[in-house]
């Protein structure tokens, strides 16, 4: 069958909302786009363990420590589900990790910002996970089957992440003056970076068009960003805090909140590797990977010995 026909059949399937499965024919670009996006997503989960992970030892109560441990562990699990989904497209996890460590593969820039206070654990949960969830809910309906299934599982588990973040901030917002100040300061730092999580404006995003056509993505960056602003602008009232944007205002005509201009220079600067923690995050992942090499090798060597012993016994 000529490629054009295969592509036509493929697109018809997509249009009819039939999921694409690992062994189905797919355009090479579809496969590549999915590998890129799923592995980026996986890397983001795994690198995302670091800023919060660094507060596990300092969590201010045993309950918060347990919640944080469970949450950061979930992120590891989510990274694993996503790596597995990408592996069905024929790329090994080792390859993906080596792309991450060499800087070839990207991860969400948000994790290149430092987590400086306990309030950041709340703000990350509420804002960063909140932004991620909008994206993830959309991806539960993405066209590639294994990716969609991983996202359904992830969304189920994620539902407590944003809630615990908001609740942690709520306690601070009702606490001492010092806690309130900590809460506001943290929101100030995380607000703009979390808006940047949705990626460049639609007018400047290179990957969006084809991804929409293939239903890998189902909403544009700007649509999701607006949805996020509308949600957070209401929720912050409950906290009695403010978002650091003087232009944030309900627009009765659009039935949406208007908001100020994002500092895109900062966004691109962090994407290029110049964020406050880019180096530190990658170094931490490299160290874990390198320090773990002998452990992984030992387990393989032991497994091989066991199989040999078994075979000898059988012979």
């Amino acid at each position: 069958m000529p490629v054009q026909d295969l592509e036509k059949i493929f697109q018809e399937k997509i249009d009819q909302e039939i999921k694409i499965e690992p062994r189905d024919w797919m355009p090479e670009a579809y496969r590549k786009t999915n590998i890129r996006q799923i592995s980026q997503h996986a890397h983001s989960e795994v690198v995302g363990m670091l800023p919060e992970g660094n507060w596990i030892s300092r969590a201010p109560s045993l309950k918060r420590k347990a919640i944080l441990l469970a949450k950061v562990q979930d992120e590891g699990g989510h990274g694993l589900y996503l790596y597995s989904a990408a592996e069905t497209l024929g790329m090994s996890r080792d390859e993906m990790i080596s792309d991450l460590l060499s800087g070839k593969a990207k991860y969400s820039s948000i994790f290149n910002y430092p987590a400086l206070t306990w309030a950041d654990m709340g703000a990350v949960g509420w804002l960063v996970d909140g932004a991620a969830i909008l994206n993830q809910v959309m991806l539960c309906r993405t066209s590639y089957g294994p990716y969609a299934r991983a996202m359904v599982r992830i969304c189920k588990e994620e539902s407590f992440h944003q809630r615990q973040g908001f609740e942690a901030l709520l306690v601070l917002s009702r606490g001492t003056d010092a806690q309130k100040a900590m809460c506001q300061e943290s929101i100030n730092r995380w607000w703009w970076p979390s808006l940047m999580m949705f990626g460049p404006k639609d007018s400047e995003s290179t990957n969006s068009d084809q991804s929409m056509k293939w239903k890998i993505k189902r909403k544009t960056n700007d649509e999701l960003r607006q949805q996020f602003v509308d949600m957070i602008a209401e929720q912050i009232k409950v906290l009695g805090m403010r978002l650091p944007d003087d232009q944030l205002k309900w627009n009765e005509e659009r039935k949406h909140y208007d908001f100020g201009e994002i500092n895109w220079d900062e966004f691109w600067n962090v994407v290029k590797g110049n964020g406050p923690c880019n180096k530190q995050r990658l170094d931490a992942r490299k160290k874990a990977h390198d320090d773990g090499a002998w452990v992984r090798a030992a387990a393989l060597a032991y497994a091989a010995k066991k199989i040999n012993t078994k075979n000898e016994k059988a012979a």
Partner: peptide, 21 residues
């Protein structure tokens, strides 16, 4: 879903830790 493990015993334990939390 899937996961990586060095042997069968580890695969089951990893599955317990990863998929039945």
């Amino acid at each position: 879903g899937s996961l990586h493990a060095a042997d069968a015993a580890m695969a089951i334990e990893n599955a317990r830790d990863v998929y039945t939390r």
